[in-house]
Nucleic acid binder design. Structure first.
Lengths: 342, 342
DNA sequence: GTTAGCACTCTATCTGAATGAGTGCTAAAC
DNA sequence: GTTTAGCACTCATTCAGATAGAGTGCTAAC
């Protein structure tokens, strides 16, 4: 599609612009050394690249900046990932070495590392409930009317929810029901739990307890997990140092969206396994038109498990971020795998 | 200290400045109507007020703006609180009426209301562990080396922590220990728990289990609550719309601090019961020199329980915010009291 | 096909003048 | 003695016009 030379020039422009955030002119490309042509020749090619939609010109007498299409080409034809600096690698090793017990701690820590290494904003999704199974269930009465339901998953995640006790249900009813659940359904994947309750222990409850309907309602309430995936943000204020967000209006649109965890979950989750890059308007959400979002997935025992992402301006250090995400997602998978064996 | 007229003029200036964020001149004060003197007279008084340290002048030919001391005087001599708008009151009633089961839900919801009503940033501290007592304790092994410890407090708060199982400790050891704790120490205030473990059940454990040292270590690990008070932020992006934070540098200092939950906890907790106003440099932390922080405490069954706060520029609508905080803290106390009775 | 040269365009920057908000001081009026 | 009108003065903001400089597009020569 693009000639060798056009490709080189486009690359050089994107590279320069990522560094400087200023429109790039023909002269500065010529002086870089890696494109050994005169400014005039480069100008001709730049005009062609603009016509093809890879470059844009803020105004007639300015240099060129990459368009979304230009970034896309750059990313798709990028040179193989650069190895990371030694000091960065050290951080990853720490992540694996550190005795972090809970999955959430690993995820949170990874997010902090990611943000501080890239100077962008990191968005990580915690474990997907879908892939974990029930370890333990408990119903603990607090007073006459409310109880707290506690669910522990196979990965040690603890979810709790305060629920109302339906009238007529006694403490011993609740205890018996919880015991039944633990005895029969421990190890069942979370996403099948509700169905299995009806099919396998409904009858049992009916036989032993008076208030079948109420107890089932109570279980239903207890197992509605409000937020099934936790969102961990880090480095949100890194957004402020990007010159493209000097404009407070644009900045606010993005930061506002970062507070909407359900939307974030949706945006990150739409990805399949592996690394994905969404540039500018490739993002579904309006607020991200000036941003690029790069995501990767991490896994536990081979099962896809959660997502880690970096949000920054479209003028992003793609090579560095993709390399970092790749390594970090692997490091996380390594840190998590083999700990909660079947 | 200040004459009647000086006080009136200072009040008018602060009022005007809070509304406009622009230095206010003698003419505009004279035209307001509530200070019936000529601009010249007002100018003289303003010069005096500046000499006394209540006002400042950005430059010679500009109007005056209140100094921290000026704000302080304004707050201390403020007219009695204005009644809130009917629509705002409705929100409070909703808070009380809504069937929010868990304490945390009440706190979180209150934070959202607070931020949206004031257009500032709300910072709320969840229940202080100090004032709750132990309801239930559980140690659940996940695999050979790790277990999850779950603590439920009298208010239904659930804390969990993943801990390493010391070598030699068996599942039945852990179960027995947890049962012992529940039998002997249920109802004991959280802040006395550690001491009581040593004094009351240490011997018991020593008698029944082989690995006394290891078990005590395990309990110790389990009960170290990393973050004892949760911090709920809402409306952080409201900071962006304040003209005093047009300067990204200043903005970043504040937003960065908002991400440091431990520091926030410390800053809010330093207050005693009731409403407190910290203006500009009255805040201990450097990052808040351009901010005012207003806090109030809420309680459960009369016991002081947590703190709610509003952070904004020193040019803050003190009357409105103080009134709102006062009512909301009462509404929260009402919504929480009598639910987890002894 | 490549490049040197040049006219042209457009932004950013600087200058100086005009504007206007606001002050401080003095002297007159109350 | 207190208040106010009047006036000279200060300083930030705004605007227009001039200038510099970066960069382009086109043409013609290599």
């Amino acid at each position: 599609m693009l000639s060798e030379r056009q490709s080189m020039i486009l690359n050089a422009i994107v590279d320069d612009y990522i560094r400087s955030a200023e429109p790039v002119g023909s002269r500065s490309i010529s002086k870089r050394g890696d494109v050994a042509f005169s400014p005039a020749t480069i100008r001709n090619e730049m005009a062609d690249l603009e016509e093809l939609g890879f470059l844009e010109q803020p105004h007639t007498s300015a240099g060129r900046i990459p368009s979304n299409k230009g970034y896309r080409y750059y990313v798709d034809h990028m040179a193989p990932l650069k190895p990371l600096k030694a000091e960065d690698l050290k951080l990853f090793k720490q992540l694996a070495a550190e005795k972090l017990n809970a999955v959430e701690e690993v995820v949170q820590h990874a997010g902090t590392i990611l943000a501080s290494m890239t100077n962008y904003t990191s968005i990580l999704l915690g474990p997907e409930m879908f892939n974990t199974s029930l370890k333990h269930f408990q119903l603990l009465p607090l007073n006459e009317t409310t109880a707290v339901a506690i669910i522990v998953t196979s990965t040690g995640e603890v979810e709790n929810k305060t629920v109302s006790i339906p009238p007529g249900v006694s403490a011993s009813d609740m205890e018996r029901t919880a015991n039944l659940l633990n005895a029969k359904l421990s190890g069942v994947p979370m996403h099948m739990l509700k169905a299995r309750i009806y099919s396998e222990i409904g009858q049992e409850i009916q036989r032993h307890a008076e208030h079948y309907e109420q107890l089932m309602k109570l279980l239903d309430d207890s197992l509605v997990s409000g937020k099934d995936q936790k969102v961990f943000l880090s480095g949100t204020t890194n957004m402020l140092i990007q010159p493209e967000f000097r404009d407070i209006g644009k900045l606010k649109t993005v930061l506002d969206l970062l507070e909407e965890t359900p939307t974030l979950t949706r945006l990150l989750n739409s990805e399949q396994k592996g690394i994905h890059v969404r540039i500018g308007s490739e993002n579904i959400h309006q607020a991200f038109v000036n941003c690029s979002l790069i995501t990767a997935t991490y896994s536990l025992d081979g099962e896809s498990f959660g997502t880690i992402g970096i949000l920054g301006p479209t003028r992003m250090e793609y090579a560095k971020v993709i390399g970092t995400l790749d390594l970090l997602s692997r490091a996380m998978s390594r840190a998590l795998t083999g700990r909660y064996g079947p």
